[in-house]
Design a protein around this nucleic acid. Structure first.
Lengths: 338, 338
DNA sequence: GTTACCATTGGAACAAGTTCCACTACATTG
DNA sequence: CAATGTAGTGGAACTTGTTCCAATGGTAAC
């Protein structure tokens, strides 16, 4: 079908090695020979097979990314950072979308293989102990984004501190009855998601430090989604003594809380202050106070780490923490009673 | 490094062909030999190289997708449909994100190569005449999603009819001063985007059929984004005789219009009716009336077509049109004067 | 006792590049 | 003038798995 290096060699009346040298810009070719080979290459529309090169070099120039629920705005933004960085270095991005435990396990087992990719990025999916061992056995570079695991590189934020930041903001506004809405254990356990749990830890730290009671009724956990958060917030707001502020583990969930207030005819922030997390695109439009984390940058940084490891560097397996930032908009205010 | 088929053959004391036959489930191996080979394979943790297999078979089990601005909700949803379908058939998805004319051209030139992928899906990016010829020359299966081109398969919607549907809805509500906000030519031309333009065509058809004047001041074109739409809508709404309804070529742009009404203290739909396009996730929350198109399905269908072509089928190069649906929510009503 | 046939097996050739050794000229050095 | 050096070149060997032809051993039929 397509012309091969042998076709070129034959047509140009030279040896295989000479064509290869021309292709690889070796100086050990006379100008006349080089030109003749280049002419034939142009004439035959010869393009070296990426495949054969890959087989020889043992490098695929491909990075695999395993991402859960890649329609989530936060995941997308990270992927964008990854793609931009990889494309800038001539690397391809293969995406594996995980939406079930089976698929997660299958990806962790099958994707990290040297004949598939040169490195693996995993978003929000920390591997278990045995999986970490298996990853090490492959000798492939692995970088975690938005999560961490011992012995592996990671790029993430300090979710506990971020949770404290959000909660402290509400406490300092004068709120005493503060709620939290995050992901349900049963669901995060499936994928080992930790962000929501850690933000919740930060939430509790601040409440306790402020001498505020942690009321179970003010803590709602459900599947990560607008609808579930809406239901949870509704319950909370219908309590005899409802919270005056709620911290949501994500903007998506904050959106559900906003819906619930609307359903009940409540006003934000007069009746309820809301803080979200991520600062997704729509947050600005909605005037949502939120904790912004560098999503694009986390992906870009993770991709840079992978590329440097592919290039042979072996950085220490530490977790890099990117800074978060509180973005104050209209959804937070002192409580009405204050 | 990793064990090869030769290592297995040597350790099992059999020939290369025998190991290959075991791997390929050939019946021409005695049970005893098969078991011995399988034992050695397990012992050496041998895994066949995907790479070498690819070189032999000439198949990469990979489909490339070229997508513009893949953070857009509509593109993401299509990608999700593509990924789900490909993963279900053991195919990998390589994503190329296009955000500039250079990158678009580079992708169209370099991605469709047999040694990179078995097929190419292109979202919203119709190739030009010379590029179509080049695509045909590669013999690679190509399917367009959300666009069409002669000689190529496509999966899209009838954007003109959809534009008519949206506009007719406004006309039938009694609106006489109807605006349109869509993508600027200068920007769509870069990528050959056609959706906005065609929806605008439908818009004009209906206005003319209804005997309504097409006023240039009621037609705004800008870069596809919330902010740009907001600016355009603001201008329109500040006219001495502003439109009583606006049709936006996308929900993202409809969002900008919503923002503009809010900026000006106007109420939707009392002062202004708005119809968007796509029915993205947030549209429901915002109560936006919109034209829903099957995004996930378009990706899934495109992927199915590619897979069937990879399997050897050569369907006629026709464009499949998926149905659209008007989703009526709270952002549309008869004009105040009616 | 042959001949015929089949199940089973081994391994060369191949896919499309890269690497590297060997060889040819010609030039420089002693 | 011989010895050494080197730029330029050719092509075998190699990467890993598949394909296919040839060969083996044994059984069955005549």
């Amino acid at each position: 079908m397509a012309a091969t290096i042998r076709d070129v060699a034959r047509a140009a009346g030279v040896g295989l090695g000479t064509v290869s040298r021309v292709l690889n810009l070796s100086p050990l070719v006379s100008a006349a020979t080089r030109q003749r080979v280049l002419d034939v290459i142009a004439e035959l529309h010869y393009v070296p097979s990426r495949l054969a090169h890959t087989l020889i070099a043992g490098k695929t120039r491909t990075v695999a990314t395993i991402a859960p629920f890649f329609t989530r705005p936060s995941v997308i933004e990270r992927l964008r950072g990854i793609e931009a960085t990889l494309a800038g270095h001539g690397y391809n991005l293969v995406v594996f979308n995980v939406e079930s435990a089976e698929r997660r396990n299958a990806c962790l087992r099958d994707v990290p293989r040297a004949d598939r990719c040169d490195g693996v990025l995993m978003i929000s999916l920390p591997p278990r102990g045995d999986e970490i061992a298996a990853l090490h056995a492959t000798k492939l570079p692995v970088v975690l984004v938005d999560t961490s695991a011992s012995g592996l590189l990671g790029v993430c934020i300090d979710d506990v501190a971020a949770g404290e930041l959000a909660t402290r903001t509400l406490v300092e506004l004068g709120h005493r009855r503060i709620g939290f809405i995050g992901d349900a254990q049963a669901y995060t356990a499936t994928f080992n998601f930790t962000s929501s749990w850690e933000r919740h830890q930060g939430f509790r730290h601040v409440l306790q430090a402020a001498g505020l009671a942690v009321r179970p009724a003010y803590e709602g956990f459900g599947f990560h989604g607008r609808y579930e958060a809406r239901v949870l917030a509704r319950e909370m707001l219908l309590l005899a003594e409802p919270p005056t502020a709620i911290f949501a583990a994500s903007d998506t969930q904050a959106l559900g809380i906003l819906e619930a207030t609307r359903d009940l005819g409540l006003t934000v922030p007069a009746h309820l202050s809301i803080i979200g997390f991520d600062d997704i695109d729509i947050a600005e439009y909605l005037g949502l106070t939120t904790v912004r984390q560098p999503l694009f940058e986390s992906g870009a940084h993770g991709a840079e780490l992978i590329l440097s490891m592919i290039a042979g560097h072996r950085p220490a397996p530490v977790t890099a923490y990117l800074p978060v930032e509180l973005v104050v908009r209209g959804s937070t205010a002192p409580p009405a009673s204050a």
